[in-house]
Write a protein that binds this DNA or RNA. Structure first.
Lengths: 171, 171
DNA sequence: TTGAGATATTTTAATCTTAAACGATTTTCG
DNA sequence: CGAAAATCGTTTAAGATTAAAATATCTCAA
């Protein structure tokens, strides 16, 4: 499976650029891990709480901030588009889990926060969610967890820096 | 930020279950890394090739297998639902990048593969894609890459095993 | 052989998601 | 001040995604 052992690939790719298969493999493995966990969490949220992952994620953002949060803040934190947040919030408001109110200083803006009912609903799910993730990562020791965190910190820093560079060059 | 330092959380969670914040944090970091990379790749695919990530991913699955692949195989490899693959393939067939033909032994099934045009199209994107990922992970040394791969192998194994257990218990 | 169960794909309905365009408001700065 | 630029949220159109039900076919064992 090592590309160094594959003369055909060598010959074809050596034309213009060096080989970056190791980076590619890392990215694919990262994606696999995330997709596996995400799919399982989604399945359990649906089955046990009849709830979807995006709604859970949005409520998770709101949970820590009692005073409320603007839609833009939610959008940045969740790393999803603004239009997405608009419709997601619409549905959560309709379900009675989230409340909107105008922002004090900015008439373009509004603050959203969990309703009392939303807070209870989320609390139940969050407890289960934490157990699920622990169950999925149960074979990792405390040291494994710490070491993997550090590795991923490096990944995150590298990616963030590269994106910042790309954004700067785009102008 | 350490939960051991937070007496309120301690008091509330100690009722029934131990603390699993380390696992939760790891999951969130994993998700952040993946989301960052994914969003940037998506942006570049769109900008430079007017192409979407799911279409790219599907073509990537088809690329290695010249003889063709069933929809079910694609669905399992991409870890997405079967219905999703159906519509994705429909669009790629319409675009002329993918061909369908009946499977030889099974009349329920069909084999899909890249058309000549699809192969060329994908080849161009794949080369750029590999460069992009390498750029995003540029701050990781060869040793970093290898070590992170190993860490993620453990994560993947743990998650897979837990999902298998859960599936077995579900019956 | 035949019927039960498994498998492959499609369809449907609802939700999620993005990118892009838009209107309203605020901020910046000459 | 006042115009230009930035920001906030929404809308729109297209596509992506899932879960669940439906259809067709296959497999296997009684």
């Amino acid at each position: 499976m090592n590309d160094q052992d594959n003369p055909r690939l060598d010959a074809e790719t050596k034309v213009a650029e060096v080989d970056h298969k190791a980076e590619l493999r890392l990215w694919l493995r990262l994606l696999t891990c995330t997709t596996l966990i995400e799919a399982e969490v989604r399945r359990r949220l649906r089955r046990r709480f009849d709830e979807t992952l995006p709604r859970f994620d949005l409520m998770a953002q709101l949970e820590r901030v009692d005073t409320g949060m603007t839609l833009g803040e939610v959008s940045r934190r969740m790393m999803v588009s603004a239009g997405n947040v608009t419709s997601l919030v619409d549905r959560l408001v309709k379900a009675g889990y989230v409340e909107r109110r105008p922002a004090p200083n900015d008439r373009r803006s509004q603050l959203i926060r969990l309703s009392h009912r939303g807070r209870e609903h989320f609390g139940r799910m969050a407890a289960a969610h934490e157990q699920w993730v622990a169950e999925l990562l149960a074979d990792l020791s405390e040291r494994d967890l710490a070491a993997t965190m550090e590795r991923l910190a490096k990944v995150k820093d590298s990616v963030s820096a590269a994106i910042a560079r790309a954004g700067r060059e785009e102008k």
